[in-house]
Nucleic acid binder design. Sequence first.
DNA 1: GATAAAAATGAATACGTATTCACGGGTTTC
DNA 2: GAAACCCGTGAATACGTATTCATTTTTATC
Lengths: 330, 330
Amino acid sequence: MASSKDVAKRAGVSQPTVSRVINGSTNVNKATIEKVRRAMEELNYRPNLIARSLKQQKTKSIALISGALHNPFFVDSTTTIVNVANAHGYRTLVYFEEQGNNEAVYEEVLKQQVDGIVLSSIFIDDPVFKELEHSKIPFVMFNRRHQAGGNFVEIDNEQAGALAANHLLELGHSKIAWIGGPTNCSTFDGRLLGYKKALGELGKAAWIKETDTTESDVITAVDQLLALEEPPTAIFAATDAMALSCQSYLMNKGYRIPEDMSICGMDDIPMSRHAAIQLTTVTHEELKPMGQFAVEHLLHLIDSPKEVRGSMQVTLKPKLIARHSSGMKN
Amino acid sequence: MASSKDVAKRAGVSQPTVSRVINGSTNVNKATIEKVRRAMEELNYRPNLIARSLKQQKTKSIALISGALHNPFFVDSTTTIVNVANAHGYRTLVYFEEQGNNEAVYEEVLKQQVDGIVLSSIFIDDPVFKELEHSKIPFVMFNRRHQAGGNFVEIDNEQAGALAANHLLELGHSKIAWIGGPTNCSTFDGRLLGYKKALGELGKAAWIKETDTTESDVITAVDQLLALEEPPTAIFAATDAMALSCQSYLMNKGYRIPEDMSICGMDDIPMSRHAAIQLTTVTHEELKPMGQFAVEHLLHLIDSPKEVRGSMQVTLKPKLIARHSSGMKN
DNA sequence: GATAAAAATGAATACGTATTCACGGGTTTC
DNA sequence: GAAACCCGTGAATACGTATTCATTTTTATC
């Protein structure tokens, strides 16, 4: 691969002059620019971003540590974040949460010298928070938050959980199950809390199922619920992805949705709108996607001098979208 | 951030020695290793991968240029590729195809000094093929292929199209529509060709709808089909994503699937198995995911000396999965 | 037309690492 | 006991770029 030195030689100038042409420095003669441009084309020259990053001590790249894509929620956020970052001249290194091996992921990211980090996969008491703060790399959390605060954008999960539970209560259900993920995630913790508060005395421990969010684990939970003496007549699944697993499994077993079981999810993933799915769900008011909030603030942090970096703590208001998967108790 | 020089100073050794410890060189005294390790921990040292990449002239990273994730097919392949690469010590820079702006994406990727490229978004006569060959960076295509060959893994699209068409024919349909994407992609081109061959005289131009694969465009196509004097009784959508759009739109209009319209997709995305969806589809025989083929061969290419780099041209055999969305013509 | 100011350029350097080479001290070999 | 060898280490260097500084050339000012 041709280097700027090769270009310089061919154009009959010095390497710094080539560098100036590349970066659009003003103080360079028009004729020289032309010579250099020609040489660059002839050699099919492309600037080496690795070398530039080393010299400038910044990589113009951010890391995204996302939840696994089998949850469509993270599909949309990943797309948004990559595209917004791109539009601002930043590239995105995409990493996926690895069950129980997140430590290695963070370690890897820190070696990459990224200019900032967006993460969706932090636990409420994750020790990585301190490490990240110590590293001085700006970072923004979205969807999930950490107990210590920091920069984050989330939905009001407690309110969301209450919204879902109240919706089902209003439909006449009194036996309402909660199926979610590990409660060391702020999302699941909040959604469960809101559910409990809304149900009050009606909430029973047996109807609360904490899973690892995989389809098989969700199915196991559903089976356990159906085997109860008092099986629930409605399910609040803490994500649409889990709600879809419930829905499919129940339908395969001959249950009708919502006649035999009402289902409410959360996230409003695109699939929930499909005519054959029609999933009742909770999402946030449409300002802009959470991922966009997060990456825009991150880029803002990166561009600000360290001393004046403001913080961002956004908690979006949830709203319920009632569709066909939830109905009156009969 | 602490550098290897800082570590060296603290440990009372030279920088090269630190480097040797990092990379597990054999010829270094045990006591020295210990000193260095301690210094690294005390300084919270992390090797700078940018500098390493510059020195070694390889980045241990690959680029993935993928179709947009709103098509679930690319969700699975992206996950697979990132994970496999990771397991082999390579990180993945994820880029998304940009309608009409792919040139810029390739340009960006080439500046990144990646060790290899996996791409799913090439056109059959894409001029970028030559550029990539000229750049000497190994690259592997999956899903779509280029007319010039190269390394690729694909499904036998022609056979797949025929499989779908024949399935619908066997169900008694004679008016079968094709809805797909631009035929300058080998996938759509092949699927259309197979469809045409299977239908023979029965295939009518009016039933063939080439879209840009977006939901709105697919819906427009469906509307046009329904408005025909002889509307089709079955649709072969060239991807499951498009098939889902058709299905949802038709159901919203009151059509019953498959009684009023049979639908067959292709890709067998996970959602197609949902009990409420039950999409008939075409996929390839289960050896391993296409993305895995691609990335494994790419890593193999990277590790091989340039002179002995073999080629890979895999065309997987398609199979039909009949589900509930296609039924007998009544 | 002399002097100051501005514009254009190159030499030297630094970013953090891995690698090559040289060197000293210890061990083996006959 | 000298030659041959291996082990452990440091000095010097290179990767490709951007930047600082000094220098030369051009333009502006009176």
